[in-house]
Design a protein around this nucleic acid. Structure first.
Lengths: 353, 353
DNA sequence: CGCATCATTGAGCTCTTTCAAACCGGGTGG
DNA sequence: CCACCCGGTTTGAAAGAGCTCAATGATGCG
């Protein structure tokens, strides 16, 4: 740690120099001295010492005046302030403390008394500063973050949405952030002619619908349940409160957003250059991965309509039918009633053009 | 503001009740009382009062003990602590202050003395809390944010990139955040076969390349200069420091990211359903808007190669040529050497299918 | 002036969409 | 119980959008 700086404001030369010497030699502090209140205030404002020792009776500006001046200043108001004075009357001490002094040492005092007093005030200030800061840094552990977010979710109202039910629509004003407890939800955009393009499938334990909240704008996309879903509705205010007071949570969302951007760019690349065949394959993979529990499952059964697949792949549902027929011929999938069994997600993923 | 809560720890029933009454009636505080140190400590931890008044000589646990116990506890260590005691000896007072007491009132005391002492300590604590919090909230004004960001940019090294020069490439480990001072830069992805898809054109006064930094991952996209560009290279560490210490800055980037997501979704919709004609038109509009200074300019001259346009529109450069020829026939644009004059950005924007 | 790069144009081909018709399974009402 | 209807699905055929390949033109730089 840096050497602490102490400002001594004292008109008596002897005491001033004597005290300064003690503090420098015994305490190992940096010492600034001022011979009257006015100079003291100036020095304090300019140098922002870690602690201030001040006499009461002085020419120019007395100790109370110094304390008053410094307590007006944003930057000096929180510097521990100790009076060193010959005034041993109770009223004097009370006045000093009521004005906000942190300690009151009656002269003559021991070196030890002075050093202890200083140490005590510095310790107090340090610990306060550090705990206040702690609550405001990203030092929250992954677990703590999750606890906070879980609280948020647990306090929230839970609503059940039926398959196909709209959760929010383009143009709506956001009032909630959503957290998916079970089921699947898709976010989608409308094209001018009414066709839909699904941009994302949300699944268990994911937040969604936060972009517009964060921008403080209306929704530019819509969301609906892809299958029956349980969704926690987190009031915007609660979300913001946590977000702004816990940088760790903000950081978490920053990462979420950054990750989302990458995913969307990847998707964009697909829309630009992939053949429809490939896009359909990727869509199946995407749905499969949102369905499985373990990340290494390779055979998956998914239940999804051609229309939903079409909206995801950005193609016509007839095309989906054709592609599925092709994949079936190639023994990549098989249709089981209204479900599709994917034999190998990996193989589907590695389809070339 | 809520009613403040005061905890009185005092074994003498009369004094305890008397003091409590004064504080409740005259001071308007909530008062909790404890008849010995042990109970006092428990109450303090459980109720977290705003201030604690404590006798020194008590059965079970004396005042020093109480102060010691509470100063061990994260949650109670910063509660202002005032001793109320008959011990008027200097050594007693020194001991109390050295242990971290905030004030020391010798019995018998006036009501006024007590109330003033309490008010003074509460005031002190409030102001410290509020200023410390201020530096950690999003209350930074738009201007202050910009000042901070400008400092960041001004401190950074500036590098000149020539047209076509690569700034970073997929797979590189990010070490800078980039801020464009002049010129244009494009971010792009490589498709498997080597074709490129530009995802964004960055222009004057924009940050770029921050997504990967924020994710703490390697770049998943590349960036190159679309024309000669002056770029400030902001070291990752400086960026993070600002980001984590100033929630306002984090908030700014959260908005940036959220906005980016919306833009990318919009783009995706275009790639999925727009005709190439429309995509080319949009691309021209995009480039034009990144070129103009005033947002209402309608006639714009842009200089950009067919290949760059193709990468932006996600199409073949031959197609770009054909589309430009069409637009020229339709008197929407005219070719001037290697530049393109757009007669009306609006008209181009409104092209149907 | 010549080379290299960039831009344009043409022709054929493929992929995808669109429109239309048929199909399938299940629920409903007669 | 059966015909019917409805939504979702499949299949067919034709049209067209956009790509590739290839040749030709234009431009600018050394």
């Amino acid at each position: 740690m840096n050497k602490r700086t102490i400002l001594i404001i004292e008109d008596n030369l002897e005491i001033r120099e004597g005290t300064a010497e003690i503090l420098e030699l015994t305490g190992g502090y940096n010492v600034l001295t001022a011979e009257n209140g006015k100079i003291g205030v100036d020095l304090a404002i300019k140098n922002l010492p870690d602690i201030i020792l001040c006499d009461i009776m002085m020419p120019e500006l007395d100790g109370y005046g110094v304390l008053y001046m410094l307590s007006k200043h944003e930057s000096t108001m929180h510097i521990p302030f100790i009076f060193l004075t010959a005034k041993s009357e109770r009223v004097d001490m009370r006045k000093a403390m009521e004005m906000g002094a942190d300690d009151y040492l009656v002269k003559p005092f021991d070196d030890i008394e002075l050093l202890n007093s200083i140490e005590s005030r510095l310790r107090k200030r340090d610990s306060l500063q550090s705990t206040l800061e702690k609550s405001h840094t990203l030092s929250l552990s992954e677990d703590d973050q999750n606890v906070l977010l879980h609280e948020l979710v647990n306090e929230a109202r839970v609503k059940i949405y039926k398959k196909k039910q709209l959760i929010y629509e383009e143009g709506d004003t956001p009032i909630y952030v959503y957290y998916l407890l079970s089921g699947k939800v898709r976010s989608f955009l409308y094209y001018q002619d009414g066709r839909e393009l699904s941009t994302y499938i949300h699944t268990k334990d994911e937040f969604f619908g936060y972009e517009s909240i964060l921008l403080n704008e209306r929704y530019t996309e819509s969301a609906s349940a892809l299958e029956d879903a349980e969704i926690a509705l987190i009031p915007k205010e609660n979300f913001f409160e946590l977000m702004f007071n816990k940088p760790a949570i903000a950081t978490k969302f920053i990462k979420l957003l950054s990750g989302d951007i990458k995913e969307k760019e990847e998707q964009m690349l697909g829309f630009a250059y992939d053949s429809v065949r490939k896009r359909v394959a990727n869509t199946l993979v995407q749905v499969a991965q949102k369905t499985i529990s373990a990340p290494d499952e390779d055979e998956v059964v998914i239940r999804i309509s051609r229309d939903d697949l079409a909206a995801l792949a950005g193609t016509a549902n007839e095309t989906i039918s054709r592609m599925l027929a092709d994949f079936k011929d190639e023994k990549l999938i098989i249709k089981e009633g209204n479900a599709i069994r994917i034999f190998s997600v990996q193989k589907l993923k590695n389809i070339k053009q």
